[in-house]
Design a protein around this nucleic acid. Structure first.
Lengths: 220, 220
DNA sequence: TAAAGGATAGTGGTCTGACCACTTTATAAT
DNA sequence: ATTATAAAGTGGTCAGACCACTATCCTTTA
């Protein structure tokens, strides 16, 4: 009936300790962390345990290691980790719905955010998109969505969106159909006009097209 | 100028190899994976390398290890990836704003979701809350918000919300002021009436009260 | 025969020490 | 002062050894 002070998984404690160290030293992106040997000595564990923790954080993209140089706080702009995840995670049918719904929540919020901001809704990038939508060159759906989420300038929301995108089974990596481009254009126009409510409605229209008509039961 | 067949990070290759093994053996959730020693032998690498890969997958919640028993394909109902990522992103002061914004995004989505669903917007729990808001007994702000997010029935969104709540510096764990209760009541009433737009506006009013008047610059 | 008990093998968890390949830095030779 | 060389530091990997724990087999016992 131990109170599990040592949580039976030392490397998990190390992950936590590393976070503390980073915090205490006020390390910023790009900064060098103590070497594995120093960490092992400081935290009083073997180097292999330190490495298990570091390798975990590396796979998450939180740190970056360069042989011969050291370990550095990573620029968390690389989401390559999720590629590996997506092949493993959730065959659970129920969770796909949550993922898609949550992704849409963030997209909708981004659309509203931009529509309500005179600065961002008049960015030249939207004009460019409108032009491209008039043409016949193929456009990937998520190109537009990504731009929207990026411009909304909520880094956490963006991060979450990128994660969810990888897990989503919605066909947002495919090219847009011709009639679909018009709906997307309408979305953009309403957004640029600052009419967030109509923009969101056009977004809903777009979803209807992409997902076919099987959106009968769930509307959140 | 090697073609990087051995990708300089052996443990990353192992992660990939593990995926292959799991696929080939048709392993399902809960199944036991080969032991670390067997894997090391089969993949012709040291056991420590195998462990670095396994520990990474464990931190991601993809596998589960039980001492003395073995390693198993995890039942990944917990999206703990988001958890870990967020705790790390949180070092940066700028991110607090993101956290609060993102939390509000989920709250707003939940309010809209419930408002648009005749079933959920007429739940007796809302009447109870209205009654309590009329009284003088103290009510914690997040009690109401939590109920809303829970009822919206998006498990992932709920998970994210709980997480963000912890890192938020907004005073949602405090009790509601008297004049504040009226605003909250209005929010509930609009929601119960199915008027999602007005409900969201009342929600914005509420935020204004809670956060004082320093919502000048950011409106997303 | 069936139940209880203990020995044994298997497993993950950890540590140590040893190499290797590579980069940086310090030192020596020019 | 510049260049070449040596040394030190770092991550990457391996092998072997324990430990703590679990499951299993097998003997002992009722």
């Amino acid at each position: 009936m131990e109170n599990s002070r040592p949580s039976s998984k030392r490397f998990l404690d190390i992950v936590s300790d590393l976070r503390t160290i980073i915090k205490e030293e006020g390390a910023v992106i790009g900064d060098k962390l103590p070497s594995e040997r120093v960490l092992a000595d400081r935290l009083q564990v073997g180097r292999s345990t330190i490495r298990e923790a570091l390798r975990s954080l590396e796979l998450l993209g939180l740190i970056e290691t360069r042989r011969g140089e050291g370990t550095f706080l990573a620029d968390y702009k690389k989401h390559q980790l999720v590629e590996i995840l997506s092949t493993f995670i959730m065959q659970n049918p129920q969770s796909f719905k949550s993922v898609d719904e949550t992704r849409r929540i963030h997209e909708r919020a981004a659309i509203e955010c931009i529509s309500n901001d005179p600065e961002r809704r008049t960015l030249p990038v939207w004009e460019s998109f409108l032009e491209k939508l008039k043409g016949i060159e193929p456009i990937i759906r998520e190109e537009l969505l990504q731009e929207i989420v990026v411009v909304s300038e909520n880094r956490l929301s963006l991060k979450i969106w990128f994660l969810l995108k990888q897990y989503s089974r919605a066909p947002f990596h495919e090219t847009m159909a011709e009639d679909e481009k018009e709906v997307a254009s309408n979305l953009l126009k309403e957004m640029m006009n600052g009419n967030s409510q109509l923009a969101v409605m056009r977004y809903a229209d777009w979803l209807d097209i992409v997902n076919g008509e099987r959106r009968d039961e769930h509307e959140c």
